[in-house]
């Protein structure tokens, strides 16, 4: 049996969503836009607490970088924190998506059959 390669752990589902949102948003990625992007694309509610916990974790792992932006009156005088994906984050996102793709390969027709059977 082939010995599995030891390397960094694959990303969790929400971590993948956050990194994908950072790739999509580019320089405009901060809390509000990231949350909105994930909510609109996945049709799920995202809490700011979950988002910032994940961003902080990704930053600790070295996958994401951040910088402080400008403060606005609309935000009660508080500055935005802009996030950007780093090269390590891009590589890890690629690895995780590839692993997920490999696991889901061939699952789609099986799910369709299952749906048809349970719909009867």
């Amino acid at each position: 049996m082939r010995k599995p390669k030891s390397g960094p752990k694959n990303l969790g589902e929400f971590e993948i969503l956050v990194l994908a949102a950072l790739v999509r948003l580019g320089t405009d990625a901060y809390g509000v836009t990231i949350r909105r992007e994930i909510e609109q694309r996945t049709d799920r509610t995202v809490s700011v607490g979950a988002l910032y916990s994940t961003l902080s974790r990704l930053e600790e792992k070295g996958y994401v970088g951040s910088r402080i932006g400008k403060a606005t009156a609309e935000r009660g005088g508080r500055a935005k924190r802009h996030y950007e994906i780093k090269a390590e984050g891009q590589a890890q996102l690629q690895r995780s998506v590839t692993a997920l793709g490999a696991m889901l390969k061939g699952v789609s027709p099986w799910l369709e059959t299952l749906n048809r059977l349970t719909a009867r």
Partner: peptide, 11 residues
């Protein structure tokens, strides 16, 4: 993250 988080919520 406190200031950015509260700022996001206020925005």
């Amino acid at each position: 993250e406190r200031a950015a988080l509260i700022g996001d919520m206020e925005e």
